[in-house]
Computed example of a mutant assay.
Amino acid sequence: MKARYIILRDSGPAARSSPQVRSFSRTASSLTIDVEELAPRDLASLAEKKIFVAPAMPMRLIAPFAAPLAVPGSDDTPPSEETEACAWGVQAVKADTSPFTGAGVTVAVLDSGIVRSLPVFDDIDVIEKDFTGEGVVDVDGHGTHCAGTIFGHDVSGTRIAVAPGVKRVLIGKVLSTEGAASDQIANAIMWAVDNGAHVISMSLGMDFPGFVKQLVEEDGYPPELATSHALEGYRTNLLLFERLASYLRVKARSTLLVAAAGNESRRDIDPRFQIAVSPPAVVEGILSVGAVGRHDDGLRVANFSNYGPKVSAPGVEIMSVALDGKLQALSGTSMAAPHVAGVAALWAEKMLKKGPLGGTQLEARVVGQTSTDEMAAGYSASDIGEGIVQAPQM
């Protein structure tokens, strides 16, 4: 029985001569990702050649939570003056007082696409690519909301973007109404790198239960065998993203990958109900992002935010643009990751003024300039990482 596999290797003449691999490939420098339907004998042949192979696993967006926040342009009660002027997340990362806007920086958003025709994206050079077969337009709203937080224009007089000076963006639609697969994510990362992305933002995660269900219901695996196969797929996909991130750190040195930590924790139910950062954010070489929210005594980790992120950012009651062009408030680490991507764009602008940009140096600057000053007493480093990201101020 054949199945869909991802093949990762250096693309020398000998490596590309394999007859099993003729479908889709994308190359950044000498790295090649191929995707092919393979039988067990093909896997054995590739293993003998020490070529890395992983099954294509289901991926899903990190679904946000609707936030009952009154915003201008909605039918709710009028918001406060502070809310009208600037989204609280933009202020919390101090982007509103930064002299940098992200000018000259290219940002990629790998998500559900955007609605490019919205005024919030006017005068921005948007390069789109569909990896789903569904078309580039966002039908979910998730990608549009995330993109708005990074570089969108003001909506109803409210600043929603951390880096409103970003004018060149890469929108890779990797999430359809049916979800996604890890090969789509890997290829989208390579596409973004090939097209000059300085920062790549991802608010998605690996769907282990979905893979088990697929093997049982679609492929006829017994549950025990499906679980074993899915575990091996999970392990090899972690290695896939780890190798990809490691390669990019060496070969494509100007790119920083940012990913949401996940929303599976439930601290409101039980303080012990904490889930670790989910893939691909957990991979070394990807900057994982947790979420914090406002409280009377300061910022606190969001109840849903997975523990163990490298950094954190505002992720509760985040105002950005909806599919209809109006403001919408959502909560999730999906909303926190774009804040970090935006802050990274501000740091990238500053660093580019002094010379070539390095992805590892950019990550070091973003992580090294975090702050815990606004955190409420009693916070844990395992919940928020190094702290809340901060925009450059001079």
Rank of each mutant, 00 (worst) to 15 (best):
V212N: 02
V212R: 10
V212H: 08
Q214H: 15
Q214P: 03
E217R: 11
E217K: 12
E218A: 10
D219H: 15
G220K: 11
Y221A: 07
Y221N: 05
Y221P: 01
Y221V: 10
P222N: 06
P222V: 06
E224G: 02
E224S: 11
L225E: 09
A226T: 14
A226L: 11
T227D: 10
T227P: 01
S228D: 13
H229N: 11
H229L: 14
A230Q: 08
A230K: 03
E232V: 15
E232Y: 06
G233L: 12
Y234W: 15
T236C: 04
N237P: 02
N237M: 02
L238G: 15
L240H: 10
F241H: 05
F241T: 08
F241P: 00
E242C: 08
E242V: 05
R243W: 12
L244W: 09
A245R: 12
A245L: 14
A245C: 07
Y247M: 00
Y247G: 04
R249C: 12
R249S: 07
R249P: 08
V250F: 06
V250L: 11
K251W: 09
K251D: 14
K251G: 04
S254G: 13
T255N: 01
T255D: 08
T255M: 01
L256C: 04
L256H: 07
L257T: 12
V258C: 05
V258N: 07
V258L: 09
V258W: 08
A259T: 14
A259N: 12
A260S: 15
A260K: 03
A261Q: 10
A261V: 07
A261S: 13
N263R: 08
E264T: 03
E264H: 05
E264L: 13
S265T: 05
S265P: 10
R266L: 03
R266N: 02
R267D: 01
R267W: 00
D268P: 01
D268Y: 06
D268C: 05
D268G: 03
I269T: 13
D270N: 03
D270M: 00
D270H: 01
P271V: 02
P271C: 02
R272D: 11
F273V: 00
F273K: 01
F273T: 00
Q274G: 03
I275L: 05
I275Q: 04
I275G: 00
A276H: 09
A276T: 12
A276K: 07
V277H: 10
V277N: 10
P279G: 03
P279A: 15
A281D: 10
A281N: 11
V283G: 04
V283A: 14
E284H: 13
I286F: 07
L287H: 09
S288V: 02
V289R: 09
G290W: 01
G290L: 04
G290M: 06
A291T: 06
G293H: 06
G293L: 07
R294E: 15
R294Y: 00
H295I: 00
D296M: 08
D297I: 01
G298F: 01
G298P: 04
L299T: 00
L299K: 02
R300D: 04
V301E: 13
V301L: 03
A302P: 13
F304P: 11
F304W: 02
S305C: 04
N306Q: 06
N306M: 04
Y307H: 13
Y307M: 07
G308W: 00
G308N: 05
